[in-house]
Amino acid sequence: MITIKYFGMLAEQAQCKQEQLDLKSLTLKELIKDITEKHNMNTLPFHVAVNQKLVQESEDQALQLHDEIAFLPPFAGG
């Protein structure tokens, strides 16, 4: 299983803060595509972090069992 986390406006859009998915040998890009379609997040701004590290938009990688993928809206601290 991999864990998907949503924050801020993305948690509001997905109507959940966290969900778990079977790995199904997805790559990161495929997962992002699936998730944005599933939750209709295409028009929302976000970054993605894999295991607490931000990934570039162009970057793709194989996902590993127990990975934590976070969908992060624009930061607003301070």
Binding site: F7, G8, A70, L72, F75, G77
Partner: peptide, 14 residues
């Protein structure tokens, strides 16, 4: 510190 925390730390505000 103020600038980098605003930019790099994943904090969200409603």
């Amino acid at each position: 510190l103020v600038n980098i925390i605003k930019k790099k730390v994943p904090i969200f505000g409603k």
